[in-house]
């Protein structure tokens, strides 16, 4: 019962995230919304795993978390340096 309620809550959170991603005036709002939706997807995965009695889904949730980090890192690196192959480490102004 509490799992179903939590699933509903996560769905509402996903809805809010999607609204922010669609309306967000700046790109950073969208990046943040993407991150939140990725986290929501992980929680939904875990909750559905427990709802159907298969907690092994948690391993796949870990994989989702890693992917979420990769996507956000790529977006942020693109924003800072304008190039994904930039080695990083210094300010973009004096490079």
């Amino acid at each position: 019962m509490i799992l179903a309620a939590a699933t509903l809550a996560v769905l509402v959170a996903l809805l809010l995230g999607v609204i922010r991603a669609l309306r967000g005036p700046t790109v950073f709002d969208r990046v943040l919304a993407a991150n939140a939706i990725g986290t929501g997807a992980i929680m939904l995965l875990a909750l559905i795993g427990f709802l159907t009695g298969r907690p092994e889904f948690l391993d796949i949730g870990i994989l989702y978390a890693l992917l979420n980090i990769i996507g956000t890192l790529a977006v942020l690196k693109f924003f800072r340096y304008g190039d994904l192959s930039h080695p990083g480490g210094e300010e973009p102004g004096d490079a």
Binding site: L14, G17, V18, A21, L22, V27, R30, V31, A33, A34, I37, G38, A41, L44, L45, I48, T52, F57, I60, L63, Y64, L67, N68, G71, V75
Partner: peptide, 29 residues
């Protein structure tokens, strides 16, 4: 591009609801 990433995560969630966890994993990755 950002919205495409969101789309993939939601699509993976749909796959999970349909009990196709391996397809969802591929979709997410």
């Amino acid at each position: 591009v950002v919205l495409g990433g969101i789309y993939s995560f939601l699509m993976a969630s749909v796959m999970i609801v349909l009990d196709a966890v391996d397809v969802a994993m591929t979709e997410a990755s």
